[in-house]
Design a protein around this nucleic acid. Sequence first.
DNA 1: CTGAAAGCGCTTACAG
DNA 2: CTGAAAGCGCTTACAG
Lengths: 347, 347
Amino acid sequence: MRHVAALAGVGTKTVSRVVNGEPNVSEATIERVRHAIERLHYQPNLDAANLKRANGRTLTLGFLVGNLADPFSAAVLRAIEEKAWERKTAVISASHDYNPERELQIIKNFVGRRVDGIILRPANGRHSFRALEAAQGIPVVFLGALPSGAPADAVTTDNAAGAAQAADHLLRLGHRRTAYCGAVAASAGDVAAEERYLGFMEKLGQAGIAARDIPVLQNLQDAETARNEIAQLIQSGPRPTAIFTAGSAGTAGAIKALRENGANNSIALVGFDDFPLADLVDPGITVIAQDVEGIGRIAAETLFARVDGFSGEPATHLIPATLKERGSGEIRSRSASRRPYVSAGIS
Amino acid sequence: MRHVAALAGVGTKTVSRVVNGEPNVSEATIERVRHAIERLHYQPNLDAANLKRANGRTLTLGFLVGNLADPFSAAVLRAIEEKAWERKTAVISASHDYNPERELQIIKNFVGRRVDGIILRPANGRHSFRALEAAQGIPVVFLGALPSGAPADAVTTDNAAGAAQAADHLLRLGHRRTAYCGAVAASAGDVAAEERYLGFMEKLGQAGIAARDIPVLQNLQDAETARNEIAQLIQSGPRPTAIFTAGSAGTAGAIKALRENGANNSIALVGFDDFPLADLVDPGITVIAQDVEGIGRIAAETLFARVDGFSGEPATHLIPATLKERGSGEIRSRSASRRPYVSAGIS
DNA sequence: CTGAAAGCGCTTACAG
DNA sequence: CTGAAAGCGCTTACAG
C-alpha cells in the first residue's frame, strides 16, 4: 500500500479509501490511485486489514466434519460455500475423522485464526459442550440433533418424520410385516438412529401393528454385515414383505441380499438417505432423501445471523426429508389384507 | 497477549517465546506464562503473527474446483487436507462452477488472503496462464493435464494408459468390436477426453483392429443422452460385443441401456471413473479407477515443495489408474475368434 | 477532499 | 534468561 500511495502521490489513507470504496475522494484522485494499483498489481492484505478493523471480522468460516469426502459432507460444504462467498467469506474445511481429540485441536486452530463462526458435525454429540468451550464464544452451529439442553443452534433432518413417512408409505401398500434394519438407540451422542426408530415404530403402532411383529436387525456396522443378516432373515422364519433400512450401509447390504435371494422384485425396500445412481439398480431404490443442500443453506444462514449479532435463544432447525419413489419401495405386499389402510397423518 | 504478559508479570516478548516454544526461558517463567494463558483462555492470533513473521507464511492453502460436491473433488480435497493439517496448514476451498470469471475472482480473493499456494482444477485448461497471472507468483498446482507449454506444475491421471488398459482387457477377452462412448477431442481445454480416446484406439490398432470397425458415440453430455444413443446402437446394426464409456455419465447411461435391452449379461462394459456402489448393479461394473487419493496427496506434496522454495522446472505428474474387475468387464465375446490375443504391452 | 499520528497483536533485531 | 523499541500492512480517530 505504501508503494501505491507513493506512486499515486497520495497518503496511504487515501489509497485505503479507494480500495474500500469510501466516499469523499475526488474522481481524479481515484483515477490516479487505480492506475497505481494496476501497475503494481496491488492486492490489499485482508489479514492486515482485519487486524485493526472495528468489527474484527476475518470473513472466514470454519467447517468441521468427520470425513469431508462423504457425499453428505461434501454437499453440505458446497451449499455453505455458496452462501459464504456471497459475503466474501471463505470457508476453511477439515475432517476430524471421528476423533474428539482431533476435533478439539482443529477448533482451537479455527479460534487462532479468528474465524467468524464454525459449522460443526461433532464427533460425539454428547460432548458438544466441550466443542462450545473450545470455540471461546465464537458462534457455532451444529449439524445433527443435539442432546437436549445444549445451548447452541443446530440444523438437522427431521429424522422421526422421515422414518414415519417411510412407514406410512409401506403401510399404504399393504405391508404389515416390515423388517427394521438399523440401530434403535443413540450411540456416541448421535440421536438420529433413535429418532428414526421411534418415528418408524410410532407410525406402525398407530396402524395397530405390534412391535413384536417387527423384526429388528441392529448392529449393521457395514454393508457386508447387513447383507448377511438380511439374507439370513429372508431365508429363515417368516419372510418380511418389506424392509426399511435406516442408513446407507444397511441399504447397500439389503440390495445385495435381496437380489441374491431373488427377492428384489418381491420384497419392498425403502432406505433412509439417498445415494448417487440409486436408479441404476433393478428396481431403482426408493429412499427417504435428506435435503442436504437445504441443511447447508440453513446452517450458513443461522450462523451468519449470529455473526451479525442476533442473540435470540438457540434453536434447532428441522429440515424435512423427502420420499423418492424409484420402484423398490412401491412393491405391494402379496399377503396384503384387503382392508384398506388410511394414513394416520391424513385421516 | 498484553494481558497474559501483565498477569504473568513478564514482557510480551517472553509470552511470545513460550507460545512459540523458543529456547532461553527459565522453567519457572514458562510455568507462570502457561498459567496465565490458561486462566485467560488465550489463543494467539495467527494472522497478527504472520503479519510480521520473517517467511510471511499464512499457513493457508487455496483449493478451487468446478464443484466441490462431486466425488472426485471431495476425495481430492480430503487427501489434500490430510497433508495440509500435518503442517498446521488450513485449506480454503471453493467452487468456480466452471465460470472463468468466478474462477479469477476467487483466485484474487486467495491472493488477498496471502495463501501460501493454490491447487486448481481450472474451468478452462487453455486459460491456465490467466489463472497463473492472477495468482501473482503464488505457487499453483493444476489438477488435470495442461496444454503443453504452460509453465506450471500439474497432477493428472494417466488417461491414455488407463484407457489402453481397458482396451487391452477387452481384447484379451476376445472383443474385437467394442463401441467407444465419449468425446474424442479436447474441449474447453480439457485434454483428458482426447488422451483417453487416443490411448484406447492405439491399443486396438496394435491388435490390428481398424478404427472404422469401432463405433464411436460422441456428444454424450448426460446419462439420458448416453442411454438413448447406446440403446439405439444396440438395437440397430451389428451389435458391439463390448462397450467402453470414457466418462461416468456415459457409464450410467450404458448400464440402463444394456439392462433395458436384456444385454447386461451378454455385452461387456468397462467404464472410465469409479463410482460408489458400482458393485450393487448386476453384474458389478468394471471400471478404470482414478487414484483420487493419490492425486490429492501428490498435488499437496508438489505444492508444499514449491512453498518450501523448490525451484526446479515445472512438471506434470502422471498418476496411474487401476482396472477394477467387478463382472461387467469380464464378459467374453461370444463371437470371439479362437486366435489367442497377446497383449502388446506384455509380449 | 486529504493526510499525519496512533494502534491492531504479534515478531524481529537489539541491548542488556 | 529477559524486555523495550520498531515495524508488519492496514484502519481508526482526528485535524485540517
